[in-house]
Design a protein around this nucleic acid. Sequence first.
RNA 1: GCGGGUGUAGCUUAGUGGUAAAGCAAUGGCCUUCCAAGCCAUCGAUGAGGGUUCGAUUCCCUUCACCCGCUCCA
Length: 536
Amino acid sequence: MEMEKLVSLCKRRGFLFQSSEIYGGFNGFWDYGPLGVELKRNIKDAWWRDMITGHDELSTPAGAAESFQMVGLDCTIIMHPQVWKCSGHYDLFHDFMVDCRQSKKRYRHDQVRGRWVEAKGKKIFVTIDPATEDESAEVERRALKFFKLRSKNKDELAWDGDFLSLTKLDDFSEVLGPDANELGTLTEPREFNLMFKTVVGALGSADDAAFLRPETAQGIFANFKNVCDSTRVKVPFGIGQIGKSFRNEITPRNFTFRSREFEQMEIEFFCRPDQSQEWYKYWRDRRFQWYLDLGLASERLQLRDHDADELSHYSTGTADIEYAFPFLPPGEFGELEGIAHRGDFDLRSHMEGKLDPNTNPLELEKDEHDQPRHRGSGKDLSYRDKETNERFIPHVIEPSAGADRAALAFLCEAYCEDEAPDENGKMQQRTLLKLHPRIAPIKAAIFPLVKKDGMPEVAQEIYRELKRDFNVFYDETGAVGRRYRRQDEIGTPFCLTVDSQTLEDQTVTIRDRDTLDQSRVPIAECAAELRRRIEG
RNA sequence: GCGGGUGUAGCUUAGUGGUAAAGCAAUGGCCUUCCAAGCCAUCGAUGAGGGUUCGAUUCCCUUCACCCGCUCCA
């Protein structure tokens, strides 16, 4: 399937538009049109119902160790700036970078190190790649090469001082970049802030800077104590949230896949540390099955466990649910959802201060004065088991899904072209979206076969009745075949048609989008039949 | 962020330094008794800004957006 065809259909039929298109568009932002908003809402509603409101806390689901509770939450997009310092996003998403005009490479400003050296009457600052292991040997090699000296003449190099970070220099005109062979190729350090910055308060100054959340998860951790105190939840339990998040992507690309404003569907599942591995596996498999059940059944969907070297030090497991989007090279997959075992990193960071993710067991991250790098809330976020009186900090399993990526994957998977007969029985190409009925924007279209003999009146009556429970659509224009095709293209799974027989026996035909099969259903049973086929 | 390519109607495309063309779609009508039929009519475009020119959609510059490759990526 070519991506351009899907993008074109999305625009033509009102699934997705480029944001601010009348002003030329805005990179990384996308709007959902009248059909797209229904699709996305159906996805979010399915998630919310399947994970939160529809969860049966009285029985033990297949694959789970015991029964558990699920509750929801809806937190603000802007939170106390300290949240992002303790979560690690502030440090991780906030860097000064320098670019090399010659090698086209980009480096963290504070990670580039080098030494001043003088030879042949010229003094330069030689830098090395931050990944270099033997810094001394490398800096010497590069200096010799720059001055066109043989290693036996290394005495001609006059070193001035020890290694320095690039942050100690103001002027880069005499700097040899890590991958450059001439001087002054590095740009001045530029701030890369992957978090959107804003100002709180109408007279806000720089001191009032706040951030739009780069993920919804932190709102859950910040409210962990509130939820425990207000709801009688007992570990194990999960808190779910759906909402917008914002990241200043460096390279937004691939339609809506990497957007700067996007919507997440996240669960933080809190459990006893000794049971966390079991729960991790449970959520990993359950979340994978959710996509399968909603129609991502092809080989384009995969569950991939991270290798050990991909894991954070404190995490004992992370898996990605990935989809082979058509815009990716063959064999490559894009992430739909990550299921991460986060241990107690988040709750403890919000208690004690930001922990160092490179430690295991986790330790508080300190600054150069041996003080906490980012102070925590100081609040006790541990959990007390009411029966055993045991107090502990729960471990967390985090299934974090992208709603927009899910919508895109469902669209990609649903798009297909087949052949259907025209009125002469000749096969014609047909474009259709084979969306699962649960997520299809319109559940059924109601047609009078022709616009006379009282058929429109009967069809409109059915339309009004079904409208009470379903998003249905009425159409009486043109030939019925054309109306079927229009619905096929937007993924409407069923069409109900009033014909002359309806006027005699009060039945209509129900047509299936994928098989083109038609059968007759009494008007009085249409709603029940639709419900059966949608939930089916 | 770098390099290359592309921007013409809702979609797919044509074309030109001098009135911008077509198919599909859409809308209204006629006709239509189950899978994009036909006929009539209607609506509708040169991404944005600037320059050269008597005149620019066409040439030049800038910018924005999209695509491809590289880079980066929670």
